[in-house]
Design a protein around this nucleic acid. Structure first.
Lengths: 114, 114
DNA sequence: TCAATAGTTCCGAATTTCTGAACTATGGAA
DNA sequence: TTCCATAGTTCAGAAATTCGGAACTATTGA
């Protein structure tokens, strides 16, 4: 398995962030991750309620989120811990992530409006 | 030619906005439009400096921007006037467009950082 | 060493994007 | 009215991307 790639903060591109978050499934995953305290595993986030995302699609979603710079993944034993890079990101693109999650009505603790 | 479709404000979806603005060419077009006073025509926005966008691609870019709710297009004689819907949009998704343009370093009047 | 679990990679099918060529709509000139 | 020029749209095939099942890899525990 090739090592996971994470872009350096200064290499993160707005187009990659927007592309990654232009898919509601990825937004749902990211929002859960932003809410979760422990660092979510892939399989813990596969269930969207109305549909269960296939493993390979899920793996790809995480790859897109990771390579865009939105999350950091690291292996912990048999599973993968994923966490958002939102503090860093807010430094590079102030207000961006919050505005996006607000638009989706997915800010942690916020009632869904869509 | 079929009539141009514009979504009602309440039908505008964040995923469509993010998708439309995940393409740097479309961002460049949108940013020019946000800066232009008159309402830009397609051909006036085709020249990106490093490349001239083909007519059909340009037409498609405008379609994506229009159907996502970012711009409004209306025929004025032989040409098309395009204008942003940013005031409306800011009402629906507060701060979103500004945060995105800031991330791209493309806010009107702002020096490019990327 | 073997089995179980978590996730990645591969690869073919389906979908989407891109763009040259043909077409449509409008306005002005003859 | 007819013809031409201009601005943009639509069509269609090629290229690129996405999706997801099946096979594979890595790690842990028995």
């Amino acid at each position: 398995m090739r090592p996971l790639f994470h872009p350096a903060l200064e290499d993160i591109k707005p187009e990659a962030i927007l592309y990654a978050l232009s898919d509601p499934e990825r937004v749902a995953i990211y929002a859960k991750l932003a809410g979760a305290s422990g660092g979510g595993t892939c399989s813990a986030l596969a269930d969207l309620g109305d549909r269960v995302i296939p493993k390979s699609s899920l793996s790809n979603h995480f790859k897109v989120l990771r390579e865009s710079g939105l999350i950091r993944s690291e292996r912990q034993g048999v599973e993968m811990r994923n966490q958002t890079r939102c503090t860093e990101l807010d430094e590079r693109f102030p207000g961006l992530i919050r505005a996006i999650l607000t638009a989706y009505g997915q800010l942690p603790g916020q009632p869904k409006t869509d």
